[in-house]
């Protein structure tokens, strides 16, 4: 079937008006909003940092200086590698991984519980309770954790009052607030994919296994988890990507000494004022995340089609 035939069929099926509308809307989205901006950013990250009038001029050539900067640091620096930025990058990924695992451990039991208890008003209320925090603004959620973990926050004041500690603990500096806040932000994205899959798991399978004398952990390890794998990996993928790419929570809850990689990008775009460098860093973040997600999916043998179910 050639392309012309394809278009003919498409318009025959949808009519000229509707067909054109569909095509234009989808092309606008896919090409103008998704693909071209990413390509443009990629291209931009290989450009010199120039004032606007010089853009497109003779000086506007390709360069890898921004990528070099990320790896090697500023030309005159005293270390041979850009320890600061690379360190932040590595720490961001590790922390995102940590948040993902935290969320998985926290959410799996509840997802299982919800998925296996059939319907019921109480379950619906639980689900509602799960959803409500997600509707509250991201900033406000982070703000709530600041109230709780701040120097004169709830926890410190309480521990002081109970005499557990004599000086306030700096939860912010210790990143406790950040992890708690990030984990909090993405709970829902972990629970629902797992819950959806487990809901469709035939209860008889579990009963059969129990009947054969399998202990509960073996039932989970051999039956529930393999079955829920698409949900688990889809949840993990989303949580990982979103926490690695988070900006608000680190800005509000992050300690002064521990930057998030997105914050560095943000700085290049604002106070730093070097857009191409910011774009290069963003590309690095994007590519790394894609690689990690792809290898995760390869590892767990999950298809892209399972994401977003």
């Amino acid at each position: 079937m050639n392309v012309g035939q394809l278009f003919k069929d498409f318009f025959a099926k949808n009519g000229i008006g509707l067909g054109t509308f569909l095509l234009v809307a989808v092309l606008f989205w896919v090409v103008i909003l998704i693909v071209l901006p990413q390509l443009s950013m990629l291209d931009f990250s290989f450009r010199h940092h120039l004032p606007p009038p010089e853009m497109g001029g003779p000086k506007d050539t390709y360069t890898i200086e921004h990528y070099k900067y990320l790896v090697l640091g500023a030309p005159g620096a005293d270390t041979s590698y850009n320890v600061v930025d690379l360190g932040v990058f590595g720490r961001t990924l590790l922390a995102a991984l940590f948040v993902t695992i935290l969320d998985l451990l926290l959410c799996y039991p509840l997802a299982y519980y919800l998925g296996q208890s059939r319907g019921g008003g109480a379950i619906r209320i639980l689900v509602l309770l799960l959803i409500i925090p997600y509707w509250i603004n991201e900033i406000l959620r982070a703000f709530a954790f600041r109230i709780i973990f701040g120097e004169s926050g709830l926890i410190n004041e309480m521990m002081l009052a109970m005499g557990l500690i004599s000086n306030p603990v700096d939860f912010i500096r210790a990143n406790v607030a950040l992890y708690a806040g990030l984990g909090y932000a993405y709970i829902l994205l972990m629970i629902f994919p797992i819950y959806n899959v487990i809901e469709s798991l035939d209860r008889n399978q579990i009963e059969a296994a129990r009947d054969m004398g399998a202990p509960w952990w073996r039932i989970h390890w051999r039956i529930v988890i393999p079955y829920a794998k698409p949900g688990i990996s889809s949840g993990c993928t989303m949580v990982f990507m979103l926490s690695a790419g988070a900006l608000a929570a680190p800005q509000i809850l992050g300690g002064p000494s521990s930057l998030w990689f997105t914050q560095i990008i943000y700085q290049w775009f604002n106070t730093g004022g070097n857009w191409p460098r910011g774009a290069a860093f963003a590309i690095v973040l994007l590519v790394t995340c894609i690689i990690i997600v792809l290898s995760m999916m390869r590892l767990f043998k999950v298809k892209i089609g399972d994401i977003g179910k």
Binding site: L242, L247, T262, V293
Partner: peptide
Amino acid sequence: LIPGVVLGI
């Protein structure tokens, strides 16, 4: 899946 920061940039 693309970080929101990247989309904005």
